[in-house]
């Protein structure tokens, strides 16, 4: 019975994420447009684009190899699995025992690698540039993420996300300086990983500054749809991760019934809406930074994570 419940939770979660991901991207775009005084496209526009692109025939460059054709599926598969591991409205999903933070980092790295390979496949200057920058930024973002995982693991005793959320939900840990530093570090990593302002501009094709868009310049048709979809999945995954760890209230306990699920769902949607609004305000308020300031930005996140860990050692040593 419990396995059945876990399976149902997992499938519902997956369906929710699949349906929500493009809507979330659309919402952020719409909110940004409203904040800037424009009318903005409908929040469902990304879904419409996806369905339209899926029906179109992809055009590949003459010297594209099998990498260009296989990479989008690898990236979507990895992003989908990572998103399936991060709980949304309920804990105790079927894959919860494997929802390890380091594995999520690994899956995101797999996604990134596939994307960078696709960027280099045709041999254009923009693709190579984007791939180079993406990997270089990830070199600093990944350790910051691992340090955040370290902080959670010291507090919760494990890097398993489901257990971490369970312990944070009990609230016995209180507010902690280390958690605050971890939150800041994780936010910076999230901004970099999702190619948002101030690290990258998701809405531009301005060659000199872009990272993410540069790698998928050659993609078209269903390949482009898949790339866009995995970008949406990644944004949803990160917001869900931040919501689950730092705002763990309202999530249904493992094995809870449908009523708790509905409450959890409503709370989840409220949390995501709040985060999307914050993101839109943040992106509207600040300017994109120069590419060569990004390492400083991520390096600061890394050092904050380290500082958080140090504070944690001190406080666990004292109490």
């Amino acid at each position: 019975m419990s396995i059945f419940t876990a399976l149902v939770t997992q499938l519902l979660h997956l369906a929710l994420i699949l349906a929500l991901a493009p809507v979330l991207t659309g919402c952020v775009r719409w909110l940004k447009a409203r904040l800037m005084g424009r009318r903005g496209p409908h929040p469902l526009q990304p879904w419409r684009d996806l369905l339209k692109l899926l029906k179109k025939r992809p055009v590949l460059a003459e010297n594209a190899s099998a990498i260009s054709r296989a990479a989008p599926y690898v990236a979507v598969g990895a992003a989908l699995l990572a998103a399936a591991l991060v709980p949304s409205f309920a804990r105790g999903m079927l894959l919860a025992p494997f929802a390890d933070l380091l594995l999520i980092a690994g899956l995101l790295a797999l996604r990134r690698f596939a994307m960078a390979l696709a960027g280099m496949d045709v041999g254009t200057s923009f693709g190579g540039l984007g791939a180079t920058r993406e990997m270089a930024f990830a070199a600093l973002a990944e350790p910051a993420f691992v340090l955040a995982a370290l902080i959670f693991a010291i507090l919760a005793g494990t890097t398993n996300l489901d257990v971490i959320i369970g312990i944070f939900q009990e609230g016995a840990l209180g507010l902690r300086v280390s958690l605050g530093f971890a939150a800041v570090a994780l936010l910076a990593v999230a901004v970099a990983e999702n190619a948002r302002i101030p690290v990258d501009n998701p809405a531009t094709h301005l060659e000199l500054t872009m990272v993410h868009e540069a790698m998928i310049l050659e993609a078209s048709g269903r390949h482009l749809a898949l790339w866009d979809f995995q970008a949406s999945l990644r944004l949803t995954l990160w917001l869900a991760l931040l919501a689950a760890v730092f705002l763990p209230f309202g999530m249904a306990a493992p094995g809870a019934g449908p009523i708790a699920w509905i409450t959890g769902l409503l709370v989840f949607i409220a949390k995501m809406a709040a985060l999307a609004f914050t993101l839109a305000v943040f992106e509207s308020a600040i300017a994109k930074m120069r590419v060569f300031r990004v390492p400083e930005f991520l390096g600061a996140a890394l050092l904050l994570g380290l500082l958080g860990a140090v504070f944690l050692f001190v406080s666990t040593g004292l109490s």
Binding site: V59, L60, E62, N63, R69, T124, R222
Partner: peptide, 14 residues
Amino acid sequence: RQAPGILHGPAWDC
């Protein structure tokens, strides 16, 4: 499931 085949053309390269 939906779209058939793939076309080949010169690289777009912005």
